[in-house]
Each structure stands twice: as C-alpha cells, then as structure tokens.
C-alpha cells in the first residue's frame, strides 16, 4: 500500500496553472527523484504536499489519510518533514537549538511544568539535548553545536537543515535541492548519506535535484516535470533514454554520454 498517493493535483495561481493533473505514488522505503527544468513546478509540488499551499484540485493521501486542507504543522505531526531550496534555518539560534526545536511535537511536559520547572522538565530537556547531539553527530556537526547557525559554511547549513528535518521523526522526507551549491566531492558524500539515512531510519524520500549524478546515482525511480505536468516516469535508465525527457531537459548531457 502506498505511503503517499497524489491524484490529479492541480494548483492555479491567477491564470497560471503551476501544477496540473499531477499524480505520484510513493511506497514505504523508496527513494524517488523529482526533476525538471527551472520553473517546472517542483517546489510548488512540495509546498502543496506540506500544506504551505492549498491545492486548487486533487487529493493527497498520506498514510491512508486525506491531508488536503491541513495546516503545515499538522502534516508534520503526521510524519512528513522537508527541507527548503533556499535554506530556512533559525539563523540566529545555535546549531543545537535548531535541532531541538524539531523535537517540539514530541515533548510532553506542559506549560506549568516548564515555568515552574516541575515534573519531567529537566528529564525531557536532557533527553532532547542528548538525542539532538546524536543527530548532529550523524551529520558531523556535533563539534559545532554551540555555533550560531548563520555562521556555518553553506554545505554545513544544508546538512543541518536535513538533520533538523530528521529530528522531527518523519516517515516521509522531502528534500528540495539538497546538493545545491555543493562541489562534486560534497555531492557524492551527500548521496551516500541520503541512502544511509533512508536505510537507518526506514524512511521514504522524495527529492528534487538538478545534479544529475546525484539523481541518477541515488534514486530508484524518477518523475520528470515540465510546465507543471509529468512528462515521464521510470527508472534512471528509462529516463535517460526517454526522448521526451531528452528534448525537454536532459538534451545535451545525455547526447554526449
């Protein structure tokens, strides 16, 4: 049974349909890529899935539940987390606090015990800090836990954003151009990391990416979007040889390969 099933998803901004008749199905444990030229509507799809935008038409079934119309925080609480194309960290907070905020939905102590320092406050805070440092360790950021997020180098900010999304304990992780701005070496490391976290945390991952080596190397299935419509769907091999994709997007790169 599919973890995520999207049917006839359509989003119209004024007279422009950014996404039209978008269908996608993700099964537990899959690592799927979403590619397409600039302005094809990839990020709009993410915004629709996470509730930032409300779809004009169509249904989104997540874990057998219709999530259309839910607020972003309600969707996150149901097990979906994401990163952003233009990094959105809590930039004036420490690296550690960025990750600790992601635990918010799992904290049980209430307002009274927070203010009066009663009950589970100390225990839960300590537990949260310990787990957050564990996550930072996975992403090789634990030594920088007290740094202010905005002072991190670009690549580390990207990694921190993924760590933060993972800390929310999602079942489905949406990555919006995780390798943007990284050099080939960093991209290669990131690719291995993404595969590793998928297995380690039993995640399903949907990622948007422009870096073809990452998409082709990591994803099992790929959807290709152009002008808000899916023009192709298949394994990396099928996509590489699909004439419509070559025409729309991969053109030169595949022709030379």
């Amino acid at each position: 049974m599919a973890l995520l099933a999207v049917n006839n998803l359509t989003k119209v901004f004024g007279g422009l349909s950014a996404v039209s008749d978008f269908n996608i199905e993700l099964h537990p444990g899959e690592l799927v890529g979403l590619i397409g030229p600039n302005g094809a509507g990839k990020t709009t799809v993410f915004n629709l899935l996470t509730g930032v935008y409300e779809p004009t038409e169509g249904t989104i079934q997540f874990n057998h539940e219709n999530i259309v119309g839910l607020k972003p925080y309600e969707i996150t609480q149901r097990g979906m987390a994401r990163t952003f194309q233009n990094i959105r960290l809590f930039s004036n907070l420490s690296v550690l606090d960025n990750v600790r905020i992601a635990y918010h939905t799992h904290v049980k102590y209430g307002l009274t015990s927070a203010v009066m320092r009663l009950g589970n406050y100390y225990k839960e805070e300590e537990e949260m800090t310990r787990k957050a440092i564990e996550f930072l360790h996975i992403f090789n950021l634990d030594r920088k836990k007290d740094e202010i997020a905005k002072n991190l180098p670009y690549g580390e900010q990207r990694r921190l954003e993924i760590a933060r999304a993972l800390a929310a304990k999602p079942r489905l992780l949406l990555l919006d151009e995780p390798a943007a701005g990284m050099n080939p070496q960093e991209t290669h490391e990131l690719m291995n990391l993404i595969k590793w976290i998928r297995d380690e945390f039993k995640l399903t991952i949907l990622l948007i990416e422009h870096d073809m080596s990452l998409v082709m190397g990591a994803c099992e299935r790929i959807y290709v979007l152009e002008y808000g419509m899916i023009i192709a769907h298949g394994t990396p091999e099928e996509i590489k040889s699909n004439p419509r994709v070559i025409e729309a997007y991969l053109g030169e790169e595949v022709a030379h390969a």
Partner: peptide, 15 residues
C-alpha cells in the same frame, strides 16, 4: 523564538 526566526520553517517543523 522559532516563529521570530522563520515562521514558515517553524510551521513545517510541526509548530
């Protein structure tokens, strides 16, 4: 504080 820092990110972190 996370709302002050980035409201959209806060919302997508489940707040």
């Amino acid at each position: 504080i996370s709302i002050r820092e980035d409201e959209i990110a806060a919302e997508t972190m489940g707040i």
